[in-house]
Design a protein around this nucleic acid. Structure first.
Lengths: 362, 362
DNA sequence: TTGAAAGCGCTAACAT
DNA sequence: ATGTTAGCGCTTTCAA
């Protein structure tokens, strides 16, 4: 059970082999789950290995086989709910697929950025790379010849051997907007995320698509920076505008700031203005009023994306199976209601549930 | 500039050497920044390397040198603000110290848990391990003989070669509690985190210490699970109790749920009940009322911890310099005020700022 | 200041 | 079903 590090003196396969009375290659076979090892020999080898505290040496394995069995992740160094959640799901999906994870963060505004991060991963040694929710820092063309999975951005972003998967942000944004239109709002304002983020652009597109589909006017877009503070500023602007009955915010943090500003301006939510967020952060069911929002299918997307990536690694020739559309999950709570004067079709029953117990529609 | 993967055919040091007209060893010297390479030769080598798109092979390097130049992190697979933020700071600190990161998540309640994660890191090859905010799953004694940094738990947790660092949760909790006592509250209730978490225990201890120092009664502790939902439940219990004027919640999520329940019970915050949270999550300045909370010095702690770890890796004999106490940062907003009837000393001026603009005392 | 030789611990290809 | 022989691409001696 002892944990001999990788240091000198650590037991090697040949030590195990000697102890078990077999060749070193047989030990290798056992530890790689190869066929053609009798149950009896396998048993003997495993016992010997445990006896000396043997552990495979990843570096030697990688050097000899040319495969590292690890995947590199380039992600933005931010605790924002979305990216953080996605990283966790990627780790689990990778582990389930038998790959370890190497992680490099990039900073927003970093000149070297994604390209530098990829370079460092390549040097460390990875079989594939996940570029998670990159932001558009200008033309960063990666020329890598290992497979790359681009999560939440165009596959073109990742070079020749790239596959892509997305959370379906556009569909989610569309669903959020449609929810408001369905309630009878004539149009919906949008508090967008920073447009250098593909994630923010997708949400903007979804909002546009929903309005366009019903031939509604598209009010001018306000751009925030994901922070509650920027939502707060936007909220005061919108309150001053006066003609706002519904807002779709590109994330929950901004929605919270927005709602606060509206309340301060004397507007009631949802009675006067309805607000929908995006993310379903942990507190969103308990803020006042509980926030209607959409939930991103991180787990499904990470799993699906890694399936594609692993396939590209292990079966480079196989046709990449198309990624299925991830599910759309709208969580209706108390921050949305029909417009005050029935701006559109009269909606069925109004409510003011600022103090109603939070509900989650799962 | 091209990105030859690690695949076969990738340029090796010997190719660069040939091109530059030097020995392979000299190339190695250049890329390791060793002395005794003339500026002219170095220049020639670098040019040749760039010409063929050479990149060091991490696996070969690790195998030959016995050092991987990477650090493994064992962290809980959760998007909770604290752990997620800490991970980001660890990555940056590691990178700044010249180490790459391998990450393995554990799941709460996983039987294999931390031990399994450590085992997998050891097999992949790391020079040191960071165990970040572990939870106590029973006696998990790690016997590893590479250095281990335990973040937010007793060093004993990490075996013989362990060093430890903490965010100073106890001091932070104590400051939060004292803030309430200073406002004149006779005592402070505590909504604790799950006690399997060391982080939760530390906060509980800090709260106890603050009350004990002033010889105040310690009301029964309510234990939540970090979620806003558990805070909500606790809030209804506390509202029913009737004699509560101040609550210290072990994180902001629970504080938000708690406040919502209090509001529903007809209690005003902070007029009737003051609430302090823990974390300073992104929305905390914009919820209603803006939340008074404490901020954890993640960056300082990660940096300090990694300094210790790297020292243990690179200079095993040097005495580990003691970790300095991290700073305590209390962020006073509008969720705290003197008690309604002046439970203690009459406090200077009361306020009800449920709708006041959020303020952050930095 | 530079070079030559000998492994690091494993997997791959080819025996048997 | 098992063993033998060569490397993988570096770093580490040691020599020049």
């Amino acid at each position: 059970m002892g944990g001999q590090g990788g240091g000198p003196g650590a037991p090697r396969a040949v030590d195990v082999a000697r102890l078990a009375g077999v060749s070193q290659k047989t030990v290798s076979r056992v530890f790689n789950g190869e066929r053609y090892v009798s149950a009896e020999v396998r048993e003997r080898v495993l016992r010997a290995a445990e006896g000396v505290g043997y552990r495979l040496n990843g570096a030697a394995r990688a050097l000899a086989s040319g495969r590292t069995r690890s995947i590199g992740v380039v992600t933005l160094g931010t605790a924002l709910y979305g990216p953080a959640s996605l990283l966790i799901c990627i780790e689990r999906a990778a582990r389930d697929a038998g790959y370890a994870l190497r992680v490099v963060n990039t900073l927003e505004g970093d000149p070297a950025g994604v390209a530098g991060a990829v370079e460092s991963l390549l040097e460390q040694g990875v079989d594939g790379i996940v570029v998670s929710e990159p932001i558009d820092e200008g033309s960063v063309s990666l020329s890598v010849d290992i497979p790359v999975l681009v999560l939440g951005a165009p596959a073109a972003f990742g070079g020749p051997r790239a596959v892509a998967a997305g959370v379906g942000a556009e569909s989610l944004a569309r669903a959020a907007t449609e929810h408001l239109l369905d309630l009878g709002h004539v149009t919906v304002h949008h508090l967008a995320g920073p447009q250098r983020w593909f994630a923010a652009r997708d949400r903007l597109q979804g909002w546009r698509a929903a309005l366009a589909a019903r031939e509604r006017e598209q009010p001018p877009v306000i751009e925030g920076d994901w922070s509650a503070s920027s939502g707060y500023t936007a909220g005061h602007e919108l309150a001053a505008a006066g003609d706002v009955t519904a807002v779709f915010a590109a994330n929950d943090d901004m929605a919270v700031g927005l709602i606060r500003a509206l309340l301060e301006a004397g507007l009631r939510v949802p009675h006067d203005v309805s607000v929908v967020g995006f993310d379903d952060i942990p507190v969103s069911a308990y803020v006042t009023p509980p926030l209607t929002t959409v939930r991103q299918p991180f787990d499904a997307v990470a799993r699906e994306g890694l399936r594609l990536l692993v396939q590209a690694i292990e079966k480079p020739d196989a046709e990449p199976a198309p990624a299925g559309d991830p599910p759309v999950e709208l969580v209706v709570r108390a921050s949305t209601a029909p417009p005050p004067t029935g701006g559109g079709r009269p909606a069925p029953g109004s409510r003011d549930s600022a103090h109603a117990p939070p509900t989650t529609a799962d």
